[in-house]
C-alpha cells in the first residue's frame, strides 16, 4: 500500500484554518450531521472517511456556503461562513479550491476556457498574456499541458479529475477541498491522483480536506484521518490510530477496503 511521504510541508498546529463546532444538518426527515466537531490546521491534509450517504460531501459544502447548517458554527480562515454577506462569501471562496466528485468541468468550453473562466471572471485586471501563463502553469502542475484545446468529453476520468484540480489551483487557494478524488478511477490513476494531492499540498502550501471512502487514498494523503459514523466523528487521529480502535463499524470499514 502507498504510504504518505512527509517531505517538505509543515503543519502549523497553532493556526486553525477550519473550525467546525457542533454542526447539525438535516434534509427533511433525514438527520445527516449530528453535532460534528473538527479542526484543520494550516498545511494539514485531513481525510474524512465514511460510508456513502453519511454526510461527507455535505460537510465540505458547508465550508463554501453551498449549504447552510441548521445549527452550530463553521469557521473558515477566521470567518463564520453562514454569516457572511455575498461579497465577503465570494472573497472567501476565492481562497478555497473545491474539486468536485465528477470534476464538474463546463462541457461547453474547452480545457483552456475551463481553466481561464474563474480567472477571467475574478481577476479582470489580468492581461491575456498573464492569463495564458497561469493556464500553462496549472496545466504543467497537473501534467496535462498538451490537452489545452480539447473538450472535457475527450478526456479520460483521471484527466478530468486533474483538470478539475487545475481549475481550482489557478486561483492559488489556501484551502483545498477534494470530494471523492479517486472514485471511479483504476488503481494506477488513483495513485497518480493521490500523488498529485500531495504535490499540491507541498507546492501550493495548502491545507486540505479530502472526502473519500478509499483507504488507499486516505493512507497515501492523510496527515490525520477523521472517521464519520452516524453523523458524528467517531474517531480523529493518524491512520494507524483510527484503525487501531476496536470498534466494529471502524474495523468492518477497514476489512471491506483491504481484504485480509
Amino acid at each position: 500500500m502507498v504510504e504518505k511521504h512527509y517531505i517538505h510541508h509543515t503543519i502549523n498546529k497553532e493556526e486553525k484554518v477550519i473550525s467546525i463546532r457542533e454542526v447539525y444538518k438535516s434534509f427533511g426527515e433525514l438527520d445527516v450531521l449530528k453535532g460534528v466537531n473538527l479542526d484543520v490546521y494550516k498545511g494539514e491534509n485531513i481525510v474524512v472517511l465514511g460510508r456513502s450517504g453519511t454526510g461527507k460531501s455535505v460537510l465540505i459544502k458547508l465550508l463554501v456556503g453551498l449549504l447552510v447548517q441548521d445549527k452550530g458554527t463553521v469557521n473558515v480562515l477566521g470567518q463564520e461562513v453562514s454569516k457572511l454577506k455575498e461579497k465577503d462569501l465570494n472573497a472567501l471562496r476565492l481562497r478555497i479550491g473545491f474539486s468536485f466528485q465528477n470534476s464538474a468541468l463546463y462541457d461547453s468550453m474547452n480545457i483552456r476556457q475551463n481553466l481561464e473562466f474563474p480567472l477571467v471572471m475574478n481577476r479582470k485586471h489580468l492581461t491575456k498574456k498573464e492569463v495564458d501563463m497561469a493556464v500553462d502553469e496549472v496545466l504543467d502542475a497537473v501534467g496535462l499541458k498538451d490537452k489545452k484545446e480539447q473538450l472535457p468529453s475527450d478526456l479520460s476520468g483521471g484527466q478530468r479529475k486533474r483538470i478539475g484540480i487545475a481549475r481550482t489551483l489557478i486561483l492559488k487557494p489556501e484551502i483545498m477541498l477534494y470530494d471523492e478524488p479517486t472514485s471511479g478511477l483504476d488503481p494506477i490513476t488513483s495513485t497518480e491522483i493521490n500523488e498529485l494531492i500531495n504535490e499540491v499540498q507541498e507546492q501550493y502550501n495548502t491545507s486540505s480536506i479530502i472526502i473519500t471512502h478509499d483507504l488507499t487514498c486516505a493512507k497515501a494523503t492523510a496527515d490525520r484521518v477523521a472517521m464519520l459514523l452516524d453523523g458524528t466523528f467517531a474517531s480523529v487521529g493518524s491512520f494507524e490510530e483510527v484503525f487501531a480502535i476496536q470498534e466494529e463499524r471502524i474495523q468492518s470499514f477497514y476489512n471491506y477496503n483491504f481484504v485480509k
Binding site: K61, A104, L105, Y106, M121, L171
Partner: peptide, 9 residues
C-alpha cells in the same frame, strides 16, 4: 457545473 461556478465566486 452550477455549483462549480458558485464556488469559483
Amino acid at each position: 457545473q452550477i455549483d462549480a461556478m458558485e464556488v469559483s465566486a
